[in-house]
Design a protein around this nucleic acid. Structure first.
Lengths: 146, 146
DNA sequence: TATTGTTATACTCTATAACTATA
DNA sequence: TATAGTTATAGAGTATAACAATA
């Protein structure tokens, strides 16, 4: 690739990275062939797996949706048996939402399916390219966390 | 990072890459502070910029939406003065949609705004990290194109 | 008869506003 | 009075089915 002479190097790299990351993300997202759950539902379930039980409000804040939207989303997840609700031990207003074993199984199956597509393409790369990606994954992770 | 002993290396790398790429993509997507256009509209406009004038059907296929959805989306873009329609020279059924100068300006401004956030974070990295990302961007681009 | 594009209609997801129960 | 959660209602986005115009 080439840099325009008058362009700061960071901007050119940012532009290139943004394009490729977004494009790859789109490909990865489209790998979802099983349409039983929406992306929002998968995301919420994944957050519960990572963080452990949360209240609906906390989950809504994590997913950047409004509480009423999370109410509806959780109703569907609960109807599908993927999450369970338990009353908060001391505060009667609050509810704790946790992933059920069935929900955990579904998330794992979903991740496995997504990884399969990417893993096949990684096998077609040279070992050098894989090494670059391995090192880049750590740096990208730090970027995303900020 | 660590690899499970019984896990093929490609699967572990795929899992790690998928997580970080999706997370970073989410961050980049959320950078859109100006809510004048939806993501679908921005995407369609961007495709027109990259590919040049297309028919509504071609554009729908590119964006993986059904033709009626593209009809509605284009109606909004046209109302906003961001695209223009011209009759196909030889086939009276077809229409060619092209980006207007105003649409081009909007796409450029949008990209600039998105790049700014990422460029600032890249400046905080070490030169070595940036070099890794520079090399990885090329590899990721190949992955996404497949 | 097949193809391109549009219109009619319905469903999903998300939002704001109003309401209920509890602190 | 404030907070957690839900219900009521509306808007955006996309889908399928039916229709009009042209090849």
């Amino acid at each position: 690739m080439t840099y325009a002479k008058d362009m700061p190097v960071d901007t050119a790299l940012a532009s290139e990275l943004r394009t490729t990351v977004m494009r790859l993300a789109r490909r990865l997202r489209n790998q979802r062939t099983d349409d039983s759950l929406s992306l929002s539902q998968i995301a919420a379930l994944g957050t519960l797996v990572r963080h452990g039980p949360l209240t609906p409000s906390e989950l809504a804040a994590h997913e950047r949706v409004q509480p009423p939207s999370m109410t509806r989303l959780l109703a569907k997840l609960e109807a599908a048996g993927l999450v369970t609700r338990t009353d908060h031990p001391t505060d009667g207003r609050q509810v704790l939402v946790a992933v059920s074993q069935q929900g955990l199984d579904m998330i794992k199956a979903d991740r496995k399916r997504r990884d399969a597509w990417l893993a096949q393409r990684l096998r077609d790369l040279t070992p050098e390219d894989r090494e670059v990606l391995h090192r880049a994954a750590e740096v990208l992770g730090r970027l995303a966390e900020q």
